[in-house]
Lab assay of single mutants.
Amino acid sequence: MQGVVKVNSALNMRSGPGSNYGVIGTLRNNDKVEIIKEVDGWYEIRFNGKVGSASKSYITIVN
């Protein structure tokens, strides 16, 4: 499943599904990500070869 980031500035990509996990990357508006699965309001995603988590509130699913 594919998604597109929708933010005003930037979205942190984290090492796990929650804001208490470390930041491993930064996503910008309109970045395209691969959604692997949903976990507690977060998506596990793949972006630029990295796997991490980002809040699903800022990612829109595209077909």
Rank of each mutant, 00 (worst) to 15 (best):
A10V: 15
T60D: 11
I35N: 00
G22L: 12
W42T: 01
V51C: 09
K32Q: 11
N48F: 07
E44A: 05
V23H: 04
V23W: 05
N30S: 06
I61D: 02
V62M: 11
I45G: 00
E38R: 03
F47K: 03
W42E: 00
R28H: 14
Y58F: 13
Q2N: 10
Y43K: 00
G3I: 05
Y21T: 04
W42I: 00
Q2S: 10
I24Q: 02
R46Y: 11
V4Y: 08
G41L: 06
Q2M: 15
M13H: 04
G16V: 01
V7M: 04
D40E: 10
V23Q: 04
A54M: 06
V33N: 00
I59A: 00
N63I: 11
D31H: 04
F47H: 10
I35L: 03
I59E: 01
N29A: 09
G52K: 00
N20D: 12
S53H: 15
F47Y: 10
T26V: 14
A54I: 13
V5I: 07
N20F: 10
G25Y: 08
V62Y: 10
M13Y: 07
G25S: 08
R46K: 12
I35V: 10
N29P: 10
D31G: 02
L27I: 05
E38S: 06
E44P: 00
N30A: 08
N29T: 08
I61E: 04
E38I: 07
E38F: 05
S15E: 12
T26E: 09
V39L: 10
I61Q: 06
I61A: 06
S19E: 15
V7H: 10
A10C: 15
G49P: 01
N48P: 02
P17L: 03
G25I: 08
D40Q: 09
N8H: 13
T26A: 07
S15A: 13
M1C: 15
G52L: 03
R14G: 06
K32N: 09
G18T: 01
M1T: 11
P17D: 03
E34G: 04
L11T: 11
G3V: 04
L11M: 10
S19H: 14
E34Y: 11
V5C: 09
G41R: 05
E34S: 07
V33R: 00
K6Y: 08
G49Q: 06
E34L: 11
M13S: 01
Y58K: 08
N30E: 09
N12H: 15
I36K: 02
I59V: 07
G41I: 04
S15P: 05
V33H: 01
K6W: 06
W42P: 00
G22C: 14
I24D: 01
T26Q: 12
S53Q: 06
K32S: 09
L11P: 03
K50P: 02
K6N: 10
L11G: 06
G52Y: 04
Y21H: 08
K32H: 11
S53P: 02
I61K: 07
R14D: 05
G41K: 04
N48R: 11
N29H: 09
N30R: 08
V23Y: 05
L27C: 05
V33Q: 00
I36E: 02
M1V: 12
D40H: 10
V23F: 05
K50N: 09
A10G: 11
G49E: 07
G18H: 05
L11I: 15
M1H: 10
E34W: 14
K50R: 11
A10E: 14
G49I: 05
S53Y: 15
G18R: 00
K37I: 08
V62D: 09
R14T: 09
V4M: 09
I59W: 01
R14I: 07
R14W: 11
R28A: 10
P17M: 05
M1D: 06
D40S: 08
N30G: 15
Y21S: 04
K56Q: 06
G41D: 10
S55L: 15
G25H: 09
G49H: 06
N12G: 11
Y58G: 13
W42Y: 10
P17G: 04
K6L: 09
V51H: 08
I24F: 01
K37N: 12
M13R: 01
I36S: 03
A54G: 03
G25N: 05
I59Q: 00
Q2T: 13
V51E: 07
V5E: 02
M13T: 02
I61L: 11
K37W: 07
G16S: 03
N63P: 12
M1W: 12
T60P: 05
G41A: 06
M13V: 15
I36F: 08
N20H: 14
G16Y: 02
I61P: 09
L27W: 00
L27Y: 00
K37D: 11
G52P: 01
R46G: 03
K50F: 10
E38A: 06
N8Y: 12
V7A: 11
D31A: 08
M1Y: 10
A10L: 14
V5Y: 02
Y43A: 01
G22V: 12
I61R: 06
Y43W: 05
Y21M: 04
K50Q: 12
S9Y: 13
I36L: 14
G41T: 06
R14K: 06
G22Q: 14
S15F: 06
V4Q: 08
T26R: 10
N29C: 10
F47S: 04
S53L: 13
N30C: 12
Y21E: 04
I24R: 00
G41N: 08
F47E: 01
S57M: 14
S53W: 15
I24E: 03
D31Y: 05
Y58E: 09
N20M: 11
V23P: 05
K32T: 12
I36T: 06
R28K: 13
G16C: 08
V5F: 02
W42Q: 01
N8F: 12
V4H: 05
N12Y: 15
G22K: 14
N20C: 13
M13L: 14
Q2I: 15
G22H: 13
E44Q: 11
S15Y: 06
S55P: 15
N29G: 06
K50E: 07
Y58W: 09
V39D: 07
S53A: 14
R46N: 09
I61C: 08
S15R: 08
L27G: 01
W42S: 01
E38Q: 07
R46Q: 08
S55W: 14
S55Y: 14
Y58C: 14
L27M: 05
G16H: 04
G16T: 03
V51L: 11
N29W: 07
K32W: 11
W42N: 01
N12V: 15
N30H: 09
A54T: 07
N20Q: 14
G52A: 06
I59G: 00
V4S: 04
T26F: 11
M13F: 11
I59H: 01
N63D: 13
G25Q: 09
N29D: 09
Y21V: 02
S57V: 13
I35T: 00
P17H: 05
Y58A: 11
K32M: 13
V4C: 12
V33A: 01
V62T: 11
G49N: 09
G41C: 08
Y43C: 03
G41M: 07
V51D: 05
D31Q: 07
E34C: 13
G22P: 15
Y43R: 00
N48D: 11
K50A: 10
G16D: 02
G49F: 05
I59L: 03
L11R: 05
K32C: 13
E38T: 05
T26Y: 10
R28Q: 12
V62I: 13
V51F: 09
V4E: 05
I24N: 03
N48C: 10
Q2G: 06
N63S: 13
V62E: 10
I36R: 04
R46H: 08
T26G: 02
Y43H: 00
S15T: 08
S19L: 15
N48Y: 06
K6R: 13
N12E: 15
D40P: 06
E38W: 07
I35G: 00
M1L: 13
G3Y: 04
G18V: 00
L11D: 03
Y21D: 04
I45H: 00
Y58P: 02
N8I: 12
K50C: 10
V62R: 05
K50T: 12
G18S: 07
I45W: 00
P17I: 04
K6F: 08
G41E: 09
I35R: 00
L11S: 05
S9T: 13
K37R: 14
V33P: 01
E44D: 05
V62S: 09
E44L: 14
T60I: 14
D31I: 05
N12M: 14
V4L: 11
E38K: 03
G18L: 02
S15I: 06
G16R: 02
N8R: 13
N48A: 11
G22I: 12
G49C: 07
I24L: 06
D40A: 09
G3C: 10
S15G: 08
D40M: 09
M13A: 03
R14C: 11
V33E: 01
D40R: 09
K32A: 10
I61Y: 05
T60E: 13
Q2W: 15
G3L: 05
D40G: 12
E34F: 11
A10Y: 15
S15V: 07
T60M: 14
